[in-house]
Amino acid sequence: MILEYFRPATLSEAVELLQRNEPITIPLGGGLTLAKRSDDIAVVDLQSIGLNYIKIIETLTVIGATTTLEEMIVFYQDNRSVVEAIKIQCSKNQRVMGTIAGLIVSENGRSPLLTVMLALNAQIVWLPGEICISLEDWLPKRHDWKKAALISEIKVDNDVQVVFESVGRSPYDQPTICCAVAKWKTGRTRITFGGFGDNPVTAFDGDVNGDLITMIKNVLADSSDQWASSVYRQDAGTNLAMRLLKELK
């Protein structure tokens, strides 16, 4: 139950509120996941602190924490894969409300957009302290993350191409298996998979060589759940990854 509601006007005020322990005080972006909380909490509404922006700063795209997924679609309108991942992730109304930081903290391994962000090797900036941590490093720690209270922005490299494909029961169903492949101009390639588990997983990061298929099968070996078997995911995932790599070539 929500006991208190705050709408701070400044970032510092928000950060101060979010460091309270009694009651548990959480940031409020779009509010889409609020209904899942049954405990007594206070919420800090971030709508007035100016974190909804997307900027290109040198080699980086910097996305403010409260940037909505709809605003991201506009920004990435020429990137079919990112747009598709967002549309599978949620419908128009949810995109208008939902924020990128909200998605990062609340979604699980079935999230197509989180899978894409992981492939892009997104970096998360936390306050207080300007702690910058990669999504890759943060995801396994997120349930115990106490180092900072608020995501301020997400950074993504510009010199990277990303392609994505999802397999679900219908075109915009949650994926049973999805794959994102990102390739930097340097040749660095990241392959990530989603559609299961607590977090999307990285199957590969580096210059493409060696036995990719074995690496993919290994990372998907324990992916069985009530939605699909690991045997299926290994085979379908390998095919998706190979197809996407070919597309990038």
């Binding site: 929500i2 509601y5 709408r7 409020l28 779009g30 509010g31 889409l32 996941t33 609020l34 209904a35 899942k36 919420v43 509404d45 709508q47 709809e70 419908s91 128009k92 109304n93 949810q94 208008v96 409300m97």
Partner: peptide, 28 residues
């Protein structure tokens, strides 16, 4: 019947844009 905007029957325009009123706090 939900509070997470699953069906959109609760849609209203919020500053001109469609949102799910079931999953937005009134205070927002």
């Amino acid at each position: 019947g939900c509070k997470s905007g699953e069906c959109g029957a609760c849609t209203v325009l919020f500053d001109g844009k469609p949102i799910n009123s079931c999953s937005m706090l009134a205070a927002q």
